Amino acid sequence: MDSRGQVSLEYLLLILVVILVLGGVTIPLIGSSIEASTDVSRASDAKVAVQTLADAANIVYSNGPGAKRTVSFYLPVDGVLLFENNRVIFTVTYSNGTKSNITAQTLCNFTPEPTRQINKGWYRAVVYWPINSTNVRVANITRI
C-alpha cells in the first residue's frame, strides 16, 4: 500500500515538472507571437488608412479642379503622416522599436504639407483640388 502512494506521488511530481518546463518554454513563444500578430494588424490598419487617403486624392484628381472629398480613417498607432509628391506615407513603429513606412501611390501630386505627428485614433480629412492649382491638397485633418 505504501508503494502505491509513493508511485502516485512520483507521477504527480513528474507531471508537475513537465508542466513547468512546457510552461517555461511556451509562454515566451506565445508572447512573441501575440506581439507579431499585433504588429501585422497595426500595419494592415495603417495601410487601409493610407489607401483611403490615396483613393480620395485619386477621385478628386479625376473630377478636376474645384473637386473636394471628405474621408474618415483610423490610424492604429502614433506616427508621422506625410504627403509627398504623388505618395501618402505613414510611419509605423513596431513593438520591437523598428520603423516602417506604409505608402500608397496616387495619380496626382500633393501640395507640399508639413510633416504631421498623428496620434492613434479616428480622423477626418478634406482632400481637395484648388482652382488654378496643379496640385491636390489635404487639409483639416481633425480627430473625430
Rank of each mutant, 00 (worst) to 15 (best):
S3M: 14
R4G: 13
R4S: 12
R4H: 12
G5I: 15
V7D: 09
V7F: 06
L13I: 10
L13A: 09
L16Q: 03
V18M: 12
I19E: 01
G24A: 10
T26K: 08
I27S: 14
P28Q: 04
P28Y: 05
P28V: 03
L29S: 11
L29P: 02
G31W: 02
S32A: 08
S32Y: 09
I34N: 04
A36H: 09
A36Q: 11
S37D: 05
T38A: 13
D39A: 04
S41E: 04
D45M: 00
A46C: 05
A46V: 06
K47G: 08
A49Q: 04
A49P: 11
A54P: 00
D55R: 11
A57R: 01
S62C: 04
S62F: 04
N63E: 15
N63L: 14
P65F: 00
P65W: 00
G66D: 08
G66T: 07
T70R: 11
S72N: 13
S72I: 04
F73E: 01
Y74P: 00
L82H: 10
F83Q: 09
F83A: 06
N85W: 04
R87Y: 08
V88A: 08
I89Y: 05
T91C: 07
V92L: 12
T93M: 10
Y94S: 14
S95A: 11
S95V: 01
G97L: 11
T98H: 07
T98Y: 03
K99W: 06
Q105H: 10
Q105S: 12
L107S: 14
T111V: 14
T111F: 15
P114G: 03
R116T: 10
R116C: 03
Q117P: 02
I118R: 05
I118W: 07
W122Y: 02
A125N: 03
A125E: 00
W129G: 05
I131R: 11
N132M: 14
T134M: 13
N135A: 13
N135I: 05
R137W: 02
V138H: 03
N140E: 12
R143L: 07
I144P: 00
I144N: 10
